[in-house]
Design a protein around this nucleic acid. Structure first.
Length: 598
DNA sequence: TTAGGGTTAG
């Protein structure tokens, strides 16, 4: 706080005191000092006091206190009280105070509206913003550019992009903030193309805030070309950019899956904060490089930065893809130890991690403990039940989800259909596949057909599966034809296999797996000549089957197993255990089929 | 210089 040299020493002392973070503890003394010294007549001193008042007093009482101190405080004093409530994140109080002020005919000015509006961004819906809009018109404050810009911003933040656009249209003068506020409103509403169109229409020079908004739109659209153009503009203006712009650029490249560019930006950042690290970590997770993501996380911690819940959500996703149960548990403990607040994202990531690591009990326990759940949380649970072979339970929880009023989305049906597929629930699968379009108005995507065809193929219903493939409005993918081919192999349908092979090779002529499957089908039918022919063809094409591999985490150490290799130091013991497990499974299978009577 | 508007990560 800088005070002019001519300021009265007591006044400077009072102002400094009011600026102290611990001033609230001496509130009563300051109150008394204000009255005895007579400085209550000074608007600046009174405004600072009003700001302090917001920390401890309800709006109507605060109003009374101020009125008792001074019969006619100027608007500045009340504005300071409103801003005080906004600063301590008490938007309801700020809004209540405003209504109280209007009701009591207190003097207000053009600064009052932006001060209250600042709090309105915390409300859901545009109700409060519209009320303030009305008051601003009535009081004649709407002609102020600051008031207009704040309103455009608040409408945009509360989901009122149409109101924001209408107001923007009516504005006689618009500056860079007006344009940025509207572009941001469209971005927040998910209208990314409209945001880019607006940017193109701008008749004032954009600044960094504008470009950051546009970068978000580019990232969400996966429009790397426009993103690169913005990158160029930033370099032209700034040369070296700050952390906010750098992070926005980094995230744009991450969302466009240009990891090399993203890494380059990350390396070149003059300063990296938690957002920079989280962006690159989540980018690596999205681009299926979870091992690198974990490595990056360790690097981040080594640099002295502690993760927050957003970083930890990404790390949990990496743990889920790698099956790193111990690392996932470490994240869980870290959250508890640090008292990090659980939200729907981290809760969902935790359920997903436990489920994908096979600790279904803990996944369900975590799900039940979540205070708030959204459709993604349910999807994580249903998907977890599905991959762990609990098809019937998945269907029961799906019914519970619908009963709780949560609307299923496309991802839910992937979980449900794969649950049916994993557990052989043909009739249920048919029913849910039909309900997708008939009840929930969701168009099946290629993945849904994939699950359904898998389900039918596993049940040996090859003709029905083939019929479904033919009914698809889009082209079947490798997975679908692969499922059909595997089913043909299991049921010795050589003719259809050959037909499918044609489709598969059309999709990916270099897929060695297709040739391997075909040669296996010929082998099952004792057509050894054909087997030799396919293998020769593979050799001629220089194809080598990519060996399958899996990773398991034991006590924090990753153990990798590659098909055909036995490099692991405990390979012999592992094979012995696997053999006995396979024997047991076979025996259990025979028992459950009734082929062995106990 | 007695206050007010727009920007980044799941």
């Amino acid at each position: 706080m800088r005070v002019a040299a001519s300021t009265h020493p007591l006044k400077s002392a009072l102002l400094s005191l009011l600026d102290e973070p611990i001033a609230i503890k001496s509130f009563n003394q300051i109150h008394a000092l204000l009255l005895t010294s007579g400085f209550y007549k000074d608007s600046l001193v009174l405004a600072k006091f009003a700001d302090l008042l917001a920390l401890s007093t309800h709006p109507s009482s605060a109003y009374k206190v101020l009125r008792q101190i001074h019969h006619h405080p100027i608007p500045f004093v009340f504005n300071s009280l409103i801003s005080g409530y906004a600063r301590i994140k008490a938007p309801r109080s700020a809004f209540l105070l405003f209504k109280h002020l209007v009701g009591n005919g207190a003097p207000l000015d053009k600064h009052t509206i932006p001060a209250v509006l600042k709090s309105c961004t915390k409300f859901s819906g545009t109700g409060e913003a519209r009320q303030l809009h009305g008051v601003a018109i009535k009081m004649g404050f709407l002609c102020d550019l600051y008031v207009q810009n704040t309103l455009v911003h608040v409408y945009g933040t509360c989901g009122g992009h149409v109101d924001a656009g209408d107001l923007f249209e009516e504005m006689p003068v618009r500056d860079v903030v007006s344009w940025t506020a509207l572009i941001s409103a469209y971005v927040k509403g998910g209208f990314f193309i409209r945001a880019l169109e607006l940017f193109a229409l701008m008749d004032v020079e954009p600044n960094m805030a504008t470009l950051v908004c546009v970068l978000v739109a580019c990232g969400r659209l996966g429009n790397v070309n426009t993103g690169k153009g913005i990158h160029g503009l930033i370099l032209k203006h700034e040369g070296e950019f700050g952390v906010v712009v750098g992070n926005a650029l980094l995230d744009m490249y991450v969302k466009c899956e240009c990891l090399d560019e993203a890494r380059r930006i990350f390396e070149e950042l003059p300063e990296r904060d938690i957002v920079s690290w989280t962006s690159i970590i989540s980018g690596l997770v999205q681009c299926k490089q979870p091992k690198d993501a974990i490595e990056m996380f360790h690097e981040m911690r080594a640099s002295g930065l502690e993760p927050d819940k957003v970083t930890l959500s990404s790390v949990l996703s990496a743990c889920a893809s790698l099956g790193l149960l111990d690392s996932g548990k470490w994240v869980h403990e870290y959250i508890e130890r640090r008292g990090i607040e659980w939200d729907v994202h981290i809760g969902t990531a935790m359920v997903d991690m436990y489920a994908k690591c096979g600790f279904l009990e803990m996944a369900m326990h975590t799900f039940e403990k979540m205070p708030h759940r959204n459709v993604s949380s349910w999807n994580a649970l249903l998907g977890g039940l599905a991959i762990n072979g609990c098809g019937k339970e998945a269907l029961q929880h799906f019914d519970r989800m619908v009963r709780n009023g949560v609307n299923p989305n496309e991802v839910t049906f992937i979980a449900i259909l794969s649950a049916c597929s994993h557990s052989g629930l043909v009739e249920e699968g048919r029913h849910h596949f039909k309900s997708m379009t008939e009840i929930y108005n969701l168009a099946p995507r290629v993945e849904h057909y994939g699950c359904m065809i898998n389900l039918l193929c596993r049940a040996g219903l090859i003709a029905e599966a083939h019929e479904l493939v033919r009914s698809m409005s889009m082209k079947a993918d490798v997975l679908i034809w692969g499922a059909m081919l595997s089913a043909c192999k299991a049921h010795g349908n050589v003719e259809l296999s050959q037909q499918i092979l044609g489709h598969l090779l059309e999709l990916d002529p270099s897929d060695s797996g297709v040739y391997v499957l075909l040669s296996n089908i010929y082998a099952t039918s004792d057509r050894w000549g054909d087997v030799t022919r396919v293998r020769k063809l593979m050799r001629e094409k220089g194809m080598k089957k990519e060996p399958g591999a899996s990773v398991i985490d034991v006590n924090g150490k990753a153990h990798e197993f590659v098909v055909g290799e036995s490099n692991h130091p405990k390979s012999d013991e592992i094979c012995l255990v696997l053999y006995s497990l396979a024997k047991q499974a076979q025996l259990d299978g025979l028992l459950s089929c009734g082929l062995i009577i106990q």
